[in-house]
Design a protein around this nucleic acid. Structure first.
Lengths: 338, 338
DNA sequence: CCACCTCAGGCAAGCGCTTTCCCAAGCAGC
DNA sequence: GCTGCTTGGGAAAGCGCTTGCCTGAGGTGG
């Protein structure tokens, strides 16, 4: 690999001069030397060693992102928003998948710290796990105490800049729609118990029920993984365990798609016999049959806002932005059968 | 940010000793000093500066990946395969989205070179653009000449290790199915003209037609972007422009989903009046209605193989692995109407 | 004509780490 | 008791780059 010294030698100048023309320093360099250096760079196909540069000039230009899984459409959308803003500010993104493993998340925080990232974005649900939360906060605090910036998306366990989706309120609004349609026995296909996303959405649901002096029996809830096949399994279990159920509320769209697929396999008419709802309004929601009633979350926007918070100069405070959710009524919901 | 020197000072040892205990050098260190160092590390929440480490010990541990867009399910699957193998080898991944912009692709190659990555993986269709191809190959050659490893997925323009999906053959097999069902007037929703993926798939289609002494008139092809809405638009255009068409072959699943959605909007029965096929067998293919006939590509496997090739020690040769494609018949295809 | 200023360009320090080499102390063997 | 080994620990060089500071040449003004 060619080094700056090689370039300088070939151009017959000092490394200092070469460095100056290569990254346009304020110091002026004669036209002639500049040309010689540029030619040497081209001849040698020289590319500066980014690590050496970072060491010499502590000017951080990469941002770390920790998500559960980029290939999950939910995070793919968020990441798109993050990317856009990062690219606009000339930052490179390092994306890390924790696969919902808290330990791995902790590892990644240190890894990114070692990479001297300008900022870290943690996206995705938090965990109900105090010991983990404490450790995470310690590590983040250590990072922030040396000038690092942190922004989180959708997790309340970390004090600081945050972008929050209206999980609670979205579920509340959606439940009200279901209640208005006459549904009373609602089965819930929930996500993992430990995720705050799950509990937040359940809380909204319960609030809407409480307004009508209804409650959600624990037997009407199935906790599953946030994916399609788990959604199908949970739905099967609800079907067998909750007689008279007229609606299935899945706490994300992937699980709702699984629910639809299972109901079709069992020849249960949707929405005539059972209504189904999702959450997140993934692109797929409008392509399944029947099209899926769900809650729209401005995911790209959330990503963009979070990156903006993290990159914004000035003191990183406790800025919390809640982005609102709205119900999208489609064909998978209808009046409860008599 | 605490440095090794800080740790050493606090532990009352030399930086050399601290370094040795921190990354388990072969040299032995007394129990007592080791403890002191470890305690200092914990107290200071010390994390080694990865850049300094890379400079001092040129042991590359990150791999660069350039894809068109990770949030596209096609690449999400490939990336999942890449990730798995990379993680198993203790490599960190830097994922770069080129958004199908050749210039950006070029920039990323240099950027990754500057990052001293151990290997680069370029995934996604190549371009029919000689000037670009030449420049790309030059840059890659420069990288490889200094010990860098390159593997490509699905692009033939670069000599070296490659994993190729059977685009041509997959399209061939799929077309044969359509022909067997009696379809003769087939409309094609193609991807961008400049992508080799598009031309490869068209080539397979033409080969199957040629076997029956049929040809594909250029008016039956619509070139569009590889996404849902473009697929819908192209289908609309085919519907209006190709009277008597009995099948729509979309060259990827997203576009096929768009086609289905448009046909439903226009009340055209699928597959009774028009059959629809996709390509790639994305997860969504089994969740749309009717479920989508498509070509299955082993995407995760392709990613895994590519990473293995890139990481495998020994001379990187011109190993080319072609992973085969298979037709998946579902409900969106049926006999051509009389 | 000389002192002084300006400015292009080079020297060298230093970023945080690893690792080779060397030193000193402890030990065994004769 | 001396030589000669082993062994733990430190000094220092160096990875590739940036940049403050210095130098020397040329230009200006008195």
């Amino acid at each position: 690999m060619a080094t700056l010294a090689d370039v300088a030698r070939r151009a017959g100048v000092s490394p200092a001069t070469a460095s100056r023309v290569i990254n346009g320093s304020s110091k002026t360099v004669t036209e002639e030397l500049r040309d010689r250096v540029l030619r040497a760079v081209a001849d040698l196909r020289y590319v500066p060693n980014a690590h050496a540069q970072l060491l010499a000039r502590p000017q951080r230009s990469v941002v770390g992102v920790i998500v559960h899984d980029v290939s999950d459409p939910y995070f793919a959308e968020i990441t798109r928003g993050l990317q856009r803003v990062a690219t606009d500010s000339g930052k490179l993104l390092i994306i890390c998948n924790s696969y919902r493993d808290p330990e791995r998340e902790l590892e990644y925080v240190d890894l990114l710290r070692g990479q001297q990232v300008a900022a870290m974005i943690l996206a995705g649900s938090g965990y109900h796990d105090d010991s983990f939360t404490t450790r995470l906060n310690e590590q983040l605090a250590a990072y922030e105490s040396t000038g690092g910036r942190v922004a989180v998306i959708g997790r309340h366990e970390h004090a600081g800049d945050a972008v929050m989706p209206a999980n609670e309120n979205g579920a509340y609004l959606l439940t009200r729609e279901l209640l208005a349609l006459g549904h009373r026995r609602i089965g819930v296909v929930a996500g993992p118990r430990l995720l705050t996303t799950t509990t937040d959405r359940l809380a909204g649901l319960r609030r809407a029920l409480a307004e009508r002096e209804l409650t959600l029996p624990e037997e009407h809830v199935r906790y599953a993984e946030f994916d399609r096949d788990s959604g199908a399994d949970a739905t099967a279990s609800l079907l067998d365990g909750v007689p008279g159920m007229t609606a299935v509320m899945a706490l994300n769209d992937s699980m709702a798609v699984g629910a639809l697929s299972l109901l079709r396999a069992r020849n249960v008419a949707v929405p005539d016999r059972i209504s189904v709802t999702g959450f997140d309004d993934m692109p797929i929601a409008r392509d399944v049959t029947p099209t899926l009633t769900t809650v729209r979350l401005p995911l790209v926007e959330m990503g963009a806002r979070a990156m903006t918070l993290a990159l914004e100069p000035g003191i990183a405070g406790d800025r919390i932005e809640v982005l609102d959710a709205g119900v999208v009524l489609r064909d998978s919901t209808g009046p409860a059968p008599a």
